[in-house]
Every structure is written in C-alpha cells, then in structure tokens.
Design a binder for these strands. Structure first.
Lengths: 207, 207
DNA sequence: TTGTGTGAATTCCTTCACAGCG
DNA sequence: CGCTGTGAAGGAATTCACACAA
C-alpha cells in the first residue's frame, strides 16, 4: 500500500507512537499534539510530524491529532488490522515464556505453533498448544501458511533452523539466538533480540 | 577511559563484533580482516574500520587484525573485564526464564538478586537465588551496590519500580515492559526490549 | 600484493522555521 | 492565536578512495 522504501528507522518508531496513543486513549484523552506526544516519548515534535507526514495528513492545524483516528491509521499502515499467526521454534524456558506471554495476543499476534526437537517435550502441552516435532517444521509451517516466526533455539542450531523457516515460506523472523543469521535479504526480514548485547552496550558508560 | 561522547550507534555495534570474533576464535581462526568480518555480519568493511579507529589502531596493514588481541581490546572498551552483578525485578515466567538463562553468566553478567511482590513467590527459590520481597528493593540493592537491573514487571508498575531502581543507585536498566520509562537521563541509561513492537515493525513489509 | 586508517564525498536523518489553515 | 505540514538548513552516519605500511 505505502511505498515500501520508507526508511526503516521511521517504521521502527510507529509502534512506539501507537503504544503511547493507545495508553492515552485508555486514559480517556481524545486528542493530542505532536508536542504532547513528543514530551511523553522524549522525541521532538518536529520528528513526529515528519514521520507521520510520510503517510498522510492526519492532523488539523491549531487542533492537533484526534487520537482514535490516528491509532486506526497507524494500525492500517503497520498492517495490524488483522491478527497475525506466529510460530515459536524452541520450547525451552524462553520459548515457553514467550508462548504464554499475554502481550502477543493483546497486541495482534497469535502464537499458533510451537516446535522443539527434544523427544521429552514433543507432544506435551503448553497452554492450548501441543509442542510439535521440529523435524516436520517445514511441512507444518508451509501448510499453515504462517509468515512470522520467533526463534528461541540455541545459537548452535539457529542458522540451520532459520534456513528451514525460509524454506517454509516464513517472511519475518525475530531471533533470540545470539548469532548473526545469514539469510537471503530479499525473501525474509530478520530482527534480533539479545539482552546480553544490550547490557554490553550499557557497560561502556559504567565503570 | 575513552571519551564517552562516541556515538551510541557505534557502541551498539561493538558487542556484535565481539560475538563474531569470539565465534571465529572458537573456530580456531587466528586473524581476520575488516572485509571478512563484514561479510559475516552484513556490514561494510569501511564501517568496521571506522568504528574501530575510534578507539585505537588494532590492525596491521596488509595483514588485518589478530583476533585474540582485538577481542581483548573490545572487552576493555566495553568494560567487560570483570563480571557485572545484575538484579532482576519481577519473577514471572519471563523473569524466571531470564534468571536461568545461561548466556548471562557465560558472557559476563551474574544475576545475584531477584525480586517480586507476590507473597506466594517471595522466599521461594530459583536456581541458587531466593526471591526477595520488592518492598525492600531500594535498601537491598543499595546495600549490594548493584548498578544494572533488568525489569520484567507488568507495564502498569514499570515506571514506579524504575524510579525505585534509580533511587537505589542503579545506573543501567534493561526494561522488558512495553512502556516508555520517564527517568532522569543524567543518572540512568535505559534500553527497552519489546518483541511485540519488533513484530509490528516487520508487519509493515508484509501483507 | 594486501588491507589498514582516514580525510573527503555522499547519503541519510533530524531539526529549524514559517506559511497557512482552523 | 495554536499547531500542522514541509521546504530548507544543519548535523550525523556511511561509504569512497587512496596514501602508506607490512
């Protein structure tokens, strides 16, 4: 819908705007301004206006932005008007915590599949899911038409599993494994979460 | 030690370099070049050289970088030459998964305290930790002289707990709560992990 | 040769500042 | 007025391209 060559750095801010707007909405606030939103977020008003202007004109001069319609617009832009199915690969402690983390479903992501390769875990239940054998990952994911996966396997098997996900047609991977995945950029997006690396950034400023 | 007004974005790449170098080290590789490292990471060679040149001259022309000394240098730059003690606030599923995640200790972070406010959980054990009552968070953390905390409490209490952490002298917070924390920039660094927001970025490019 | 370190050039991102609308 | 949307300006980050050292 929107030209997809909008800078990634702008896209990355939209979910932040969305979250704050939804919080304001819950507080009963009806409209806001780039200045007020900026204050909440520690971002300049100009940046918020510039970012939003990439997608349309959502505000009124002198008045600001109506919160409910802006929320709607952002959801539209981010393709959040329907629930996305997600697969979790790896049913260790982290995978299990993720599978049961309520924020995913609250904010539009339904975890519908979870895999592991440990025979002790396969066929056991997690919430209303049954842990699947990752041997059959490709066929099962292909059949389910899932486009998004979260990777919580050990670093040593992450690359191999990620390649299988691509083979299965997955187009977005959020990886918790502390390794850089080498995948064809044209067929899949990859983001990483590595808390240790984030701590290691902060220690630079400590002593 | 190093001038702390080096761009954050450069600091954020150092842990990535470090991880890849350690992996190469494990593979038995002795030296590398900015080009080879760049290939592994999907980053240009020039960027790696520029980044490293902020901190010294670690390479030899024609030869490249000796991996072991570069690892040492990076650890020195990032203050990773000693183990850092860390407190985890919130002993829900996520907090427990974190407390038992082996990567922290493997990579220099020792989780020494875990807190919760649920009477059912207080005084129960997690690995070799005992869950502490978060009522006494400020005094306990102050006494322990911990500088780093990870926050895994619900969004609704994150701001309040974060303020207590600052009061207790914590200087770096890694928050898993999906809210923007409003804290004095001069006394504490904050980074956020919100997997839902990361998924929401990627859905922009899906349909 | 090979590959670093680095000024210069370029590209990208943010902020400024203001016309114009409600 | 107050606040948006946006060209223009300014600042940052990345990439280029080359002198030079091993």
């Amino acid at each position: 819908m929107y030209s997809k060559n909008i800078p990634k750095i702008i896209i990355a801010r939209l979910p932040i705007y969305l979250e704050t707007l939804e919080m304001m909405h819950k507080e009963g606030i009806r409209k806001t301004s780039s200045k007020e939103l900026g204050n909440r977020l520690g971002i300049t008003a100009a940046q918020i206006r510039k970012d939003l202007s990439q997608f349309g004109e959502f505000g009124k001069q002198g008045t600001g932005y109506p919160i409910d319609t802006l929320i709607c617009e952002l959801k539209g832009i981010l393709n959040l008007n329907h629930v996305w199915d997600v697969a979790v690969i790896g049913a260790g402690r982290l995978g299990l915590a993720i599978a049961q983390y309520p924020e995913f479903i609250h904010r539009g992501f339904h975890i519908t599949l979870i895999f592991d390769n440990d025979p002790e875990l396969i066929n056991t239940r997690v919430g209303d899911l049954t842990i699947q054998d990752s041997t059959h990952l490709v066929e099962i994911i292909k059949k389910s038409n899932i486009k998004i996966a979260m990777l919580t396997v050990p670093a040593s098997s992450a690359q191999k599993v990620a390649e299988e996900l691509v083979k299965a047609g997955v187009q977005a991977i959020l990886s918790y494994a502390p390794v850089t995945l080498n995948l064809p950029t044209d067929s899949v997006q990859v983001l990483h979460i590595d808390p240790v690396k984030q701590l290691q950034q902060m220690t630079f400023f400590l002593d």
